[in-house]
């Protein structure tokens, strides 16, 4: 059905579906989407196929929201195809912006991952050591599967993107604001801009928990904490990354007693989530002030204040490992 409305596409690569749910969570505003856009491609919501996309002229889609991470050759192929067909390609959600949760697998090599999943995982029985193969011959002919990539890159490192929209997932109101902006025909922000979040304010700025200007005696593990409601989590030792994280979500997690785990990414656009998170938590614990104690004692006590962060990588790069400053080096340490 031909229409003059700008075309909209949404695609999931290696995704959980949460990003699409967030779009659906715009509730009745979804009618605005239908009024202002011609929704031409979205495997989650519409019966549209890759061949429909291939048949469209290059650059004919006004806006594509690309979510999920790039785990397989197929994900990459779809990223390249949608890049070609779209005027505005948005890396949508933490997975597309910076690898997201799936990119935590970048800690291990492709072979380690496959043997873990197909041979070693508890409950796996695979005596014939069968692995997925790109090409398999069966009596009926050839079967193919997309290749599993060595590591997950962020979308912007695989294809040029106009905008980034972080969040796991991005909030519905923020999605609506972006859709309205594009539909309005008004001047758009410069390419490379991070949309749907605050460029200058951290999650703490949006958080209503009371800051009492107190340092925590020591960090505690989130799973073992019973924080006092209404009082800043990090001041109670719960490793909340609000200070290091871009605002925009409205401090959703602290509002329900959960520490911010950093899904909107580091506040500093050139920053590194690991560096930012370490700086934030190291500044939140009390320094030992007892000058009578010996140096070794002071050092041990001070180190112990951050010991509860048992897995620094998983804590600080939960959504951002693809963008880690030193993530691509050859592994020096034998695991």
């Amino acid at each position: 059905m031909a229409t003059d409305k700008p075309k909209l596409a949404m695609y999931w690569a290696a995704a959980c579906g949460g990003c699409e749910i967030s779009l659906a969570n715009m509730h009745e505003a979804i009618l605005e989407l239908d009024r202002d856009f011609d929704f031409v491609f979205c495997p989650c919501f519409l019966d549209t196929k890759k061949k429909d996309l291939e048949a469209m002229p290059d650059g004919s889609i006004r806006l594509t929201l690309f979510n999920g991470s790039l785990r397989t050759e197929e994900n990459l192929e779809m990223a390249r195809l949608l890049r070609k067909k779209s005027q505005l390609l948005v890396a949508f959600g933490s997975c597309a912006v910076s690898g997201g949760v799936p990119a935590l697998a970048n800690q291990r090599s492709r072979d380690e991952l496959l043997s873990r999943v197909y041979l070693e995982a508890p409950g796996t029985v695979n005596p014939d050591r069968l692995f997925p193969r790109v090409l398999s011959q069966v009596p009926e002919g050839e079967l193919t599967l997309p290749e599993f990539l060595d590591r997950i890159p962020s979308l912007k490192d695989a294809v040029p993107v106009e905008y980034l929209m972080p969040g796991c997932p991005p909030e519905p109101e923020r999605i609506l604001a972006v859709l309205r902006l594009v539909a309005s025909g008004e001047a758009l922000p410069d390419p490379g801009t991070v949309l749907g979040c605050s460029a200058t304010r951290a999650v703490c700025d949006e958080c209503t928990r009371e800051k009492r200007d107190q340092a925590a005696p020591a960090l505690v593990r989130s799973s073992e904490a019973l924080p006092e409601p209404g009082w800043c989590l990090v001041e109670q030792g719960v490793p909340c990354l609000g200070m290091a994280t871009k605002g925009g979500c409205g401090a959703l997690c602290p509002a329900v007693q959960m520490p911010c785990s950093g899904c909107y990414g580091p506040l500093d656009p050139d920053g590194d989530a690991g560096g930012a998170g370490i700086a934030a938590l190291s500044g939140a614990v009390a320094a030992p002030v007892d000058h009578g104690a010996g140096e070794a004692q002071l050092v041990a006590r001070s180190r112990a204040t951050v010991a509860a962060v048992a897995d620094p990588l998983g804590t600080f790069y939960r959504y951002t490992l693809s963008d880690c400053l030193i993530g691509e080096r050859d592994q020096e340490v034998v695991k």
Partner: peptide
């Protein structure tokens, strides 16, 4: 405190 966390982080990053 930063050193304590960094020392453990860089190992996880393969350094």
């Amino acid at each position: 405190c930063r050193a304590e966390l960094l020392e453990r982080l860089v190992v996880q990053l393969g350094v």
